[in-house]
């Protein structure tokens, strides 16, 4: 059960049960709908960029497993106050971390907060749960309304 404890760390269970920024803002400048057709999990990510291109607000709503909800919750906390470019950079590093292509450590300490999610590397069927919120946020920033994991 050790790898289960590694996957479901307290921080993840906490974010999964009490997701931060779990709301529908009325002043978002971009939004996208994410869908994992394999499991039916769905979420909508909202982003508000200010005039300087900084992420002023990020939020989400949806239904999903503990991993995807925790990942979305932590993502919205992390990208607030970052530039759009920085958000992309974090996405790339996080994706690499989840798929085992890197530990993200080189990118910067910001990613440390997400390292609790790296346990999905040992659960190949669950990687998409962790990355779906990020794919959805990137789609919102790119002006794409829809994204699926397939």
């Amino acid at each position: 059960m050790d790898d289960l404890r590694e996957l479901y760390q307290e921080v993840i269970l906490d974010h999964g049960k009490h997701p931060r920024n779990f709301r529908t803002p009325d002043d978002a400048t971009a939004e996208a709908h994410g869908n994992n057709p394999l499991c039916g999990d769905q979420l909508t990510v909202y982003v508000k960029l200010d005039a300087d291109g900084l992420v002023e607000d990020a939020a989400f709503i949806g239904r999903g497993c503990a991993i995807s909800v925790a990942s979305a919750s932590m993502m919205t906390e992390l990208v607030k106050g970052k530039t759009e470019a920085k958000a992309h950079e974090l996405f790339e590093a996080f994706h690499a971390m989840c798929t085992g292509e890197g530990d993200g450590g080189a990118v910067d300490e910001e990613l440390d907060k997400l390292k609790v999610l790296s346990g999905v590397r040992d659960f190949p069927t669950r990687v998409k749960c962790a990355t779906l919120p990020w794919h959805t946020m990137v789609a919102a920033l790119a002006g794409d309304g829809e994204v699926t994991t397939e």
Binding site: M1, D3, L4, G40, C65, A66, T125, R126
Partner: peptide
């Protein structure tokens, strides 16, 4: 207390194979 996918992942570790999801019946 838990989403079906999390349940399936945990019980897989106990050797139990079940299906979790929408079962092609959205």
């Amino acid at each position: 207390c838990a989403h079906p996918h999390d349940i399936a992942t945990v019980i897989d570790r106990a050797g139990v194979a079940v299906r979790a999801g929408h079962h092609c019946a959205q």
